[in-house]
Design a protein around this nucleic acid. Sequence first.
DNA 1: CACATTTGAAAGGCAAATGGAG
DNA 2: CTCCATTTGCCTTTCAAATGTG
Lengths: 230, 230
Amino acid sequence: LVSNPQTAPSEVDGVNLEEIREFAKAFKIRRLSLGLTQTQVGQALSAAEGPAYSQSAICRHTILRSHFFLPQEAQENTIGSSLTGKLNPGLLYPARFEKLDITPKSAQKIKPVLERWMAEAEARHRSGMQNLTEFIGSEPSKKRKRRTSFTPQALEILNSHFEKNTHPSGQEMTEIAEKLNYDREVVRVWFCNRRQKEKRMTPPGEPPPTHEGPYSHSGSAGDASSCHDL
Amino acid sequence: LVSNPQTAPSEVDGVNLEEIREFAKAFKIRRLSLGLTQTQVGQALSAAEGPAYSQSAICRHTILRSHFFLPQEAQENTIGSSLTGKLNPGLLYPARFEKLDITPKSAQKIKPVLERWMAEAEARHRSGMQNLTEFIGSEPSKKRKRRTSFTPQALEILNSHFEKNTHPSGQEMTEIAEKLNYDREVVRVWFCNRRQKEKRMTPPGEPPPTHEGPYSHSGSAGDASSCHDL
DNA sequence: CACATTTGAAAGGCAAATGGAG
DNA sequence: CTCCATTTGCCTTTCAAATGTG
C-alpha cells in the first residue's frame, strides 16, 4: 500500500527484499498460469545441468512470507533496532524471524536462474509446445549428493553406537559403515550431525550429556524421533 | 510382541489390519534398501499405465500408524465395543481414529499393486540395472484429472463471487470460467467444494450464513485461508 | 445438487549434505 | 578430522480439488 522507497528501503546484505518479494509473488502467478507445479519446475531445472532443486526448494523460493519480506512487520518481530530496515549483516536473519527459512542472500542467488527459466518456459508455451518440463535452465553447477534415507534398523544401530560413544574413531566408523552397508562418509557425517543435534537440544546448563540414565530426557527423545514407528 | 492371532484378529471389512501393517513396514524397508524415494516409486508407477500415485499416496500407504493398525491401541481410542477387533462396517473408520487417513479398504486395494511393482524392482536391481524407476506397474486404470491450483487472484475473485452468491447459475459460472481462463467444470466443482467447506465450518446453530456483515466470522476466515498471502 | 470419500499440490519439520574455520 | 552455520531434500501433513453415490 504505502510503497514509498524512502520509508522502507528494506535492504539486507545488499539485497532488496522488496524486489525479492515481488519476484516471488510474480513467479508463483506465472507458474500457475502455465499450469506447472513446483515439482515440475524443480524437475525441469534439474533435468539437464541446472542447479537441480526439489519441490521444497521451489516452494521456499517462491513462497510469500509477509512477515519476512515486509519491513514493517519485521520490526514488530523485535528487530527494529533501526528504522532504516538495515540489519546487522553479521547476524543470522532466520533466528530473528518467526521461522527458519530462506535467507535474503540465497534468494538473491537463485532469482536469476528462476527468472531465466521462466522466461524460456513462457516462450515455449506461446509457441504452443507441450514439453515445457523438459529443457535446460542454466549454468552447469556441480550436483549435490542425493540425501540418503536410513532404514529404521540402521538408525537404531547408529543411535545405540552414539549412546555408547559420540566420537567413534575412524576405525570404528569404517566398521559401522561396513556392517550397515552405507558409505563411510555418510556415517561420518551422521555422527557430526548427531552431535550438533545433541548440542542444540541441551543449550542451558543441563546435566552433563552422559548417556547413562536409562532413557532420560534427550536420550529417549532422540530415539523416538529417529525410529518414529517401530 | 504378543502376536497371538486369536487374541487380536483385527479384521475390518474383511481386511486383515495386521497384514496390511506388516506389508507397509516391509515395503518401507525394501524401498529404502533399494535407495528409492517415495517420489520415485510414485513416478515409476505412473510412468506407464499404473494407477499413477503421487508421493503423498505412497507415503500414506507405507506409513506406519501404530494407533491405526494396532488393535490394542484402537480400543483405547473409544472404539472397543468388542474385543474381537471387528468394527461396524457401516461406519467410517477415519472419524474414529486420531487422524483422517487411509481406510483399510483402500490399503487392501493398493497392496497388490505395490507388491508386484516392488518384486519387479528388486528383480531388476539384482540384475544390476540402474533404470529401476522406469517400468510399468500394473493394469490400465483410467487416469485421474490433475489437480488444478488456482492463482491467488483467481481465488480472490472466486471467493468474492461466492460471498455474493453461493449458487451461481450455469450462465454465471460459464462467465466466471471464461474470465479466469479455467475450465468451466473446474469452476463448477470449486463452488461445490466451497459450499461443503462452508457447511463444515458452521455445524452448530450459527447465525445464518448470510455473507453480509463486513468480514464477520467465517467470511474473513474463508478469505484468509484461501489467499494466504496477498 | 449435497455429501462422503479419495487423492495430490503445497507447505512444514527434521536432518543429511555442504562449506568455512580451527 | 572437528565444530558450527547454513543449505537443501525426504518425508509428512494439511487443505482442498476431484471423484463417487444418492
